[in-house]
Amino acid sequence: MVLPSTSPLRAGLVVVQPLRRKHCAACRRGPLPLLVLEDGVPRCLACADLGHLVFLPRGDTALTRRSREESALWAVVVRFNRRRGRYERQGLLVEEEALARAESRCLADAEARRRRRARDARRRAAQDARFAEAFATQIRRLFPGCPPDRAGAIAAHASERGSGRVGRSAAGRALSEGAVTCAVIASVRHLDTPYDRLLMDGVARHEARRRIAADVEAVLRGWREAVGTAAAAQSPVTGTEAATKPTVRTDIAG
């Protein structure tokens, strides 16, 4: 077990939460919940002179930072994530007295930090609401036949913070036509076609999308009709312009 060169822990002491049963090479104690690698062999915390440290799980940023500041000796605890192929931080080992001092410091300004978190949460909520409204407005511009409530629901779903959906992508935040259309297509696929039932029946995803592509396009065409009517009344589209207008494949978007 060797920490990779890409590990974020390039300096300082590193303690590993092993995925497999390991025993200390010195005292043979085991299996070890935590170990230190010395010369490529595992050693328990006691043999590595870290047995007096206590574990502080990750999660509380202020407590973690202050515990590290207060502790003369500390180590980062990591565990290998097989799916991502990298070591990830799980917390710290710090001196017990240092942890107590850090907890006292955190309690002293807990109210101020709570108010700051509340302000930050309100600010993010306001930003998210403005973005979702802008996203819904763009949906209604591209698909004027889409019911307003449906446009709002699509925008709220696609733009949810931390979701990784198309609304949070760079193109989505820029309200690009392609990203907005992909969000609408995804909603239509799940709510207006038998796509979900096909998946439950064991149909492969790409085949299910192919089967319902015409249904998706029919809904989109109906929602776009007002755009086509308005455009025709204002400025007829020439054959060349129509040929160069970008399209979005409904069988792959979303």
Rank of each mutant, 00 (worst) to 15 (best):
V15G: 10
W74C: 09
A75L: 05
A186I: 00
G254M: 04
R115D: 05
G178R: 15
L19F: 00
T229R: 14
R65H: 12
R10Y: 03
R43C: 04
D49I: 01
G40M: 04
D192M: 09
L142D: 01
C24M: 09
E160V: 10
P33R: 05
S71M: 08
L45W: 04
A46N: 07
H52D: 14
G85I: 02
V54T: 14
R205I: 09
L99V: 02
F143Y: 15
L92S: 01
A170Y: 03
R43G: 13
W223P: 09
A231C: 05
H190F: 05
I185K: 05
L53E: 10
A112E: 14
V188F: 04
C44L: 04
D60E: 15
R105I: 00
I139E: 13
M1Y: 08
L99D: 09
A158P: 06
L50C: 04
A171C: 10
T250H: 11
A230Y: 01
C24S: 11
L56M: 07
A243K: 11
E96R: 15
L34Q: 06
C24H: 08
A126I: 00
V219Y: 02
L191M: 05
R141G: 09
G164I: 02
G162I: 03
A110C: 01
L199P: 09
R205Q: 10
A204C: 03
R168N: 03
L199G: 13
E95T: 02
V166D: 06
L220Y: 03
A134Q: 14
R124W: 12
R249M: 07
